[in-house]
Design a protein around this nucleic acid. Structure first.
Lengths: 337, 337
DNA sequence: GCCGCTTCATGAATCGTTTCAATCGCCATG
DNA sequence: CATGGCGATTGAAACGATTCATGAAGCGGC
């Protein structure tokens, strides 16, 4: 069926070993021979069988990346950063989407193991890193993305989410808002929990400030819209003065429900801030204030860490890299009153 | 290093063939034996080596998908549809991003061939489908996504872009606008060319209407912003009355430059319509009118077609599935004057 | 002419799984 | 008791690229 090195070898009148050498270390082969083999390759349309290479090598040329939500631009940016960096080492990235479901996460981990990936980058789901134990035991380099490991058993590249949450709510408080609401969930997701923690810290610092926690049960535009609709149905006095959403998708959903489907003004009636500073935040109905994370850099750094860990052997010192988030103020928390 | 079927077999006291049978057709093996083997698998932490399976099978369990831009939500939606459908047949999807660059497209095609993918879904780059010839000759099932093949040599799942372009501009004309601008590019991308074609058709039908073509040289928010800024700098009388952008990202960029960085009102001064109807179109500063395409359905249908083509053998009749686009009117082309 | 050295090329062994023809027990039947 | 049939199991061959110990050829120096 398929053309193999054997076919190429016989057409070029050399041995299979030589063909392999031409493919992988042409400098070891006499120029004339290289030429002859390459002609044969071209003539037969030979394409290497990656599976056979892998089998022999015991490892693939790819690394796995599992994100919580491919539809979230934050994660596609992370993926971009990872791909570009991986390409430098001629590795490719297999992108898996856990969709915040443990079983999907587990399925991807299993798949990546079967593929004998070089390593795994993962934005893990719960606080329980048990699902990752298999990876560690098997010695597969693993780097946590957008998430730290308190136990220090994994390397990680993250952003200080507590600081981010604090920044966001501190900003709302500085605007004079007191009745703040946090929208996000599920709380099993560490990023969500940490951002909430930071929010609480900020609220505790200001006398008379309160924080209502609204569990959005998910982190998509749709979930946000549902929360926004619920807010709309409340009597005006029962509404928060400001909303901090755990990510921009949620915030955009809330915004949509409040201003477009309803007639609640942002920021006059409710100030709103999101998290991630995705591209679409700036172009929203009311341009959205947000907390910026260096998404592309997170991806590329994660790959670097992975490669270093892979090179360093099993007892490599795990590294925890933490970036600082940055407040971006736009109209949705404008001072207009 | 790694645990193999051989190890499992010897621990369970059976032959390797039996282990393989337990893994793949447990109904052929006596229940007691299945049990014993599974215990051994669990105890050793055995994980199949996908490379070896592939080598033996001659084919992988994945299909390749090459899109023009992963950051465009339209394509992530297509990918979603494809993944879900592929998962039904326990296939996985390798996502490649050509970024509108021929060399990246070629690299992904080569990679997929080395991986011996089941088939390839591709949103190809230029009018020249030559890069795909290798796939066809090799008998790798290939389905064009979001794009038809005039020569009929490939199956395809697409949306009638000429009709979409017509719908968009017809709508602008119906609003009373006459000096229309089309923003998009590069024109080598068929989708862009077809949408322009439809736009021209609509303009020709109306006396006094004109179409200015502005080559945006790309299809991202940034490209759109650049075009918007150029429009802003024109004297008011030299500006178009309405803009049709080849996709929503572009439209959002234009919108941003006009309304947020400038003081041109949309739709009063310039009406604006995009294409794709991505989620973020609805939440934009001025909610964006757009042409909706059934993105998720495109992805799932493409996989179905691919599977049918793979099952049908080499002289399978290629199918061209064409969906119809749909006009979605929002504020950016509102009738307010 | 021989030695030692370098440069090239060889081809069998190997990776781990699947497949399939062959074999083994065992039971029911004649 | 011999035979046939059946389900369960076996084990060697095969997939295709890479590796590496081995060997051949060429060349300069003495």
């Amino acid at each position: 069926m398929s053309v193999s090195v054997r076919d190429v070898a016989s057409l070029a009148g050399v041995s299979v070993g030589t063909v392999s050498n031409v493919l992988n270390r042409p400098e070891k082969v006499a120029p004339a021979t290289v030429e002859r083999v390459q002609r044969a390759v071209a003539e037969l349309g030979f394409v290497r069988n990656e599976a056979a290479r892998q089998l022999r090598a015991g490892q693939s040329h790819s690394i796995g990346l599992i994100v919580l939500d491919v539809r979230n631009p934050f994660f596609t940016d992370v993926a971009r950063g990872a791909e570009d960096k991986a390409a430098e080492g001629s590795l490719s990235v297999l992108l898996g989407n856990s969709d915040e479901k443990p079983e999907r996460e587990a399925a991807h981990i299993a798949l990546f193991q079967e593929q004998r990936v070089h390593g795994v980058l993962i934005s893990p789901l719960g606080d329980d890193l048990g699902r990752l134990a298999a990876l560690r035991e098997r010695g597969i380099p693993t780097v946590l993305v957008d998430r730290q490991d308190p136990a220090g058993e994994f390397s990680s590249v993250s952003v200080d989410d507590v600081a981010g949450g604090y920044l966001a709510v501190r900003h709302l408080l500085d605007l004079g808002r007191r009745r703040i609401a946090f929208v996000g969930g599920p709380h099993g997701i560490r990023q969500v929990a940490d951002r909430l923690l930071g929010a609480q810290k900020a609220v505790e610092e200001v006398y008379g400030a309160s924080l209502e926690v609204i569990d959005g049960e998910g982190l998509t535009v749709l979930h946000g819209r549902a929360v926004g609709e619920a807010l709309r149905e409340r009597a005006a006095y029962a509404r928060p003065e400001a909303v901090f959403a755990a990510n921009d998708l949620l915030a955009l959903g809330v915004l949509q429900a409040l201003t477009m489907l309803g007639d609640i003004r942002v920021p006059q009636d409710i100030a709103l801030i999101g998290y991630d500073d995705i591209d679409f935040a700036a172009t929203a109905v009311v341009p959205l204030s947000s907390i910026r994370q260096p998404s592309v850099l997170i991806g590329s750094t994660a790959v670097e860490l992975l490669l270093r860990e892979a090179a360093g052997g099993p007892d490599f010192e795990h590294e925890q890299i933490v970036f600082q988030p940055e407040l971006v103020v736009r109209a949705s928390t404008g001072t207009a009153d």
